[in-house]
Amino acid sequence: MKRLLQRDVWVFDLDNTLYPAHTAVMSQVEARMTEFVMQLMELEREEAFKIQHGLWHDYGTTLNGLMVNHKIKAEDFLEFVHDIDHSVLEPNPVLADHIAALDGARIIYTNGSVRHAENVLARLGLDHLFEGIFDIAAADFTPKPQRESFDRFIKRHAVNPARAVMFEDSARNLETAAGIGFATVLVRARENIGNGHTAGPGEHPEFVDYAVDCLDTFLGEVVEGFKETPA
């Protein structure tokens, strides 16, 4: 815990990090992505799903792959895939209290859109707690885990990685963060959800400082650590 108590910039991924991975948010987004590919390429769902996941694997996001190979407008894609039911999310006052107790800058860093992030944060009751949202457009549509995306984030928010902590459900995103100097916290799903990027139970790569199964509980321990540390 000492490694975190020396930091004062708190960087949070959004989806499957600030809420449990089994919540039906990203499953809706994934389905909308498949639907977009189906319409764009006039394919059946199964084939569109394979292409979508291939693009994600090769380009970091489905969007990036579609922009490179099919010259789509990013805004059209983001509006389509984030047109989902956010009411599946419940307010989390415990998490809100813990995040509010973190001294320093608190920033959202997501491969999604600002609009989607705002909708998620509002449903969770966290929308008043962050000084900024760095989304895929701010990254010039270069997604995590690419180093260029991190460089743009660091420049935009004047972040010193040696003073920052990154919370993520994706180990491959944290590998880049760790290489730059961020302290890293992997937020694992409590069961394997099979999406190819959210960490499953027991996963703890060597470049990850802390791997946790409940963000609420872990942040509570961090906050208590600050209380016990002499000023």
Rank of each mutant, 00 (worst) to 15 (best):
A96K: 03
T229R: 15
W56K: 08
T110M: 01
M41F: 14
A139Y: 04
I133Q: 04
A164Q: 07
I108P: 00
A164W: 01
R7M: 09
V120W: 00
P91K: 07
Q52A: 10
I193E: 00
P20D: 09
D169M: 02
L43T: 07
F218H: 14
F167E: 13
Q52K: 05
Y59V: 06
N192E: 12
A31H: 13
Y210F: 15
E224Q: 11
F153W: 04
D140L: 03
N195C: 03
F226S: 09
R123T: 05
K144G: 11
P230H: 10
E224A: 14
N64F: 04
A101G: 08
G196Q: 10
T184R: 02
Y59S: 09
V187G: 05
D97C: 01
I72Q: 03
V68T: 12
G104A: 13
L40V: 10
M26H: 10
L186P: 02
L121C: 03
A138K: 09
E175A: 13
I107P: 00
A211G: 05
F150I: 03
D213I: 01
Q146L: 04
L95W: 00
S170D: 08
I107T: 14
K2H: 04
E168I: 01
V88A: 15
K50T: 12
F49W: 12
E35Y: 14
G225M: 08
C214V: 07
Q6N: 10
H204W: 05
E168K: 09
E30G: 07
L14N: 03
N111L: 07
R190V: 10
Q146A: 10
A100M: 00
S170R: 06
V212A: 08
H204L: 14
F49D: 13
A177M: 04
E44T: 10
E224P: 00
D58V: 14
E30N: 10
V37H: 06
D83T: 12
I180F: 07
E148R: 08
G225V: 06
V88H: 15
H116W: 06
T34R: 02
H98L: 02
W56G: 01
D97Y: 01
M1D: 04
D97S: 14
I154Y: 00
T198C: 05
T61F: 07
F141N: 14
V222M: 11
F150K: 01
